[in-house]
Simulated scan of single mutants.
Amino acid sequence: MSVLPSPSRPLRLAAAIGRGDAADALDAEPYIRAARLAERGRLDFVTLGDSFTRRGPDALAVLARVAPATERIGLVPTVTTTHTEPFHVSSAVATLDWVSRGRAGWTVDVSTTEAEARLFGRRPAAPARALWREAAEVADVAGRLWDSWEDDAEIRDVATGRFIDRDKLHYVDFEGGDFSVRGPAIVPRPPQGRPVIAVDATASLPREAAARHADIAYVRAMNRSGAAGARADLRGRAAAHGRDPDALTVLAALTVDLTDGERAASADSASYEGKLTAGRGGRTRYRGGPVGLAALIGDWYEAGAADGFHITPADPDGDLERFVNGTVALLQHRGVFRTFYPGATLRAHLGLARPAGRYAPAPAGGIA
């Protein structure tokens, strides 16, 4: 493998730590153990999926428990915007950013079924197009609420009894298609300014939301050219919305079965050709060994097909360990992936600047 990392485009790696139907899915320790393992590999972040159809603990609450047990790795739960209040979503994600000291993100998702709607009884199921339009508005208003406190709005002056400078709190006055939010937030501006927003952008409807608002986009592709096409499309759409395309990190999403790693490595095991298949739900599945997966990652990254990879282990325990101790260790040995965290926040891991608050006054002689 001849690939070398680009200083302007470092390789990004992330992993899912879901337990599925495992017997210990309601215990905190397996999630903590998995996040610590990923952190030892210096992965950018871990994700935890969630939906209203899944039995199990709330993903955001689980990662709030994982936060004090880890130090650097980013924590990105799935948060469904359908049937939930945008104000509450914003507050919950901001709280995760505070308890993790700047390592929070969230994967935006929607709920499309009538069964999910009946859980709440507030409104019937809606078409996916309307739900993704609403999700994009929730992502937009969340950012506005995070900005509604200026960074120095808290005074905490015991002598005068003043906690907040009211002049540094701002109303967002957002009017969406299905909701309105006045603000300001009840949680101070998060350590990152705005926690990272992620979207699974494989399908066309969420892809548009990702191009407008996401910092991270996941795409599923069966080959390098498919991933490259999806990345180019996302970057083009982001540019059309006036965004810097380099501010959008596009990760190829793979489910990995690394059981072949139990065998001795051979020349054939270093190849990933023919080891990608279509899994359930349109997921791209890799079955092979850690060496072959390292070859795939290096090949797609070198070709510019993806900025990195989001890995879902087929076996939550064994495959995550094989990925970190096998694939990631090999990429680090070859100088393709980092061996230390250059910063302390998820934005720092992804090379994203901390954004200025949109309501803060412009500094003298400059632009906020």
Results as ranks from 00 to 15, higher is better:
Val3Leu: 12
Pro7Asn: 14
Pro7Gly: 14
Arg9Lys: 15
Pro10Ser: 12
Ile17Leu: 04
Gly18Phe: 03
Arg19Met: 15
Arg19Asn: 07
Ala23Trp: 11
Leu26Val: 07
Asp27His: 05
Asp27Phe: 04
Arg33Cys: 06
Ala34Thr: 01
Arg36Cys: 02
Arg36Asp: 02
Leu37Arg: 06
Ala38Glu: 00
Arg40Lys: 07
Gly41Met: 04
Val46Ile: 13
Thr47Arg: 15
Gly49Phe: 03
Phe52Tyr: 15
Arg55Asp: 09
Ala61Glu: 08
Pro68Ile: 02
Ala69His: 13
Leu75Tyr: 07
Leu75Pro: 08
Val76Asn: 10
Val79Thr: 11
Thr80Glu: 09
Thr81Met: 10
Thr82Met: 02
Thr82Ser: 12
His88Met: 12
His88Phe: 14
His88Gln: 15
Ser90Trp: 08
Ala92Arg: 15
Ala94Trp: 10
Thr95Asp: 00
Leu96Val: 11
Trp98Met: 10
Ser100Met: 07
Gly105Thr: 11
Val108Thr: 13
Val108Gln: 04
Asp109Ala: 15
Ser111Phe: 04
Ala115Arg: 14
Leu119His: 11
Leu119Asn: 14
Phe120Gln: 05
Phe120Asn: 00
Ala126Thr: 03
Arg129Asp: 15
Leu131Ile: 07
Trp132Glu: 03
Arg133Leu: 12
Glu134Leu: 13
Ala135Cys: 14
Ala135Tyr: 09
Ala136Met: 04
Asp140Lys: 13
Trp149Cys: 03
Glu150Ile: 02
Asp152Val: 07
Ala159Arg: 13
Ile164Pro: 04
Ile164Asn: 10
His170Ile: 01
His170Met: 00
Tyr171Met: 11
Phe174Ser: 02
Glu175Ser: 13
Gly177Asn: 13
Arg182Tyr: 02
Arg182Ile: 08
Gly183Pro: 02
Gly183Gln: 01
Val187Arg: 04
Val187Cys: 03
Val187Pro: 09
Pro188Lys: 11
Arg189His: 09
Pro191Leu: 00
Gly193Thr: 11
Pro195Asn: 03
Pro195Val: 07
Val196Gly: 06
Ile197His: 01
Ala203His: 13
Leu205Ala: 13
Leu205Trp: 01
Ala209Gln: 00
Ala210His: 05
Ala210Ser: 07
Ile216His: 09
Ile216Trp: 02
Ala221Ile: 11
Met222Lys: 08
Asn223Asp: 15
Arg224Leu: 14
Ala227Asn: 03
Ala228Gln: 14
Gly229Cys: 13
Arg231Thr: 08
Arg231Cys: 03
Ala238Asn: 08
Ala252Ile: 07
Leu254Val: 03
Leu254His: 01
Thr255Asn: 06
Thr259Asp: 11
Glu262Val: 10
Ser266Gln: 11
Ser271Asn: 02
Tyr272Thr: 03
Glu273Cys: 02
Gly279Asn: 07
Arg283His: 08
Gly288Glu: 12
Val291Ala: 11
Val291His: 06
Ala295Phe: 04
Leu296Phe: 01
Trp300Leu: 14
Trp300Gln: 01
Ala303Tyr: 07
Ile311Glu: 10
Leu320Gln: 09
Leu320Lys: 01
Glu321Trp: 00
Arg322Ala: 05
Phe323Glu: 03
Gly326Pro: 02
Thr327Arg: 04
Ala329Pro: 01
Leu331Trp: 05
Gln332Glu: 00
Val336Thr: 12
Thr339Glu: 14
Thr345Cys: 08
Arg347Asp: 08
Gly351Arg: 08
Arg354Glu: 08
Tyr359Asn: 05
Ala360Ser: 05
Pro363Ala: 01
Ala364Met: 01
Gly366Trp: 10
Ala368Arg: 12
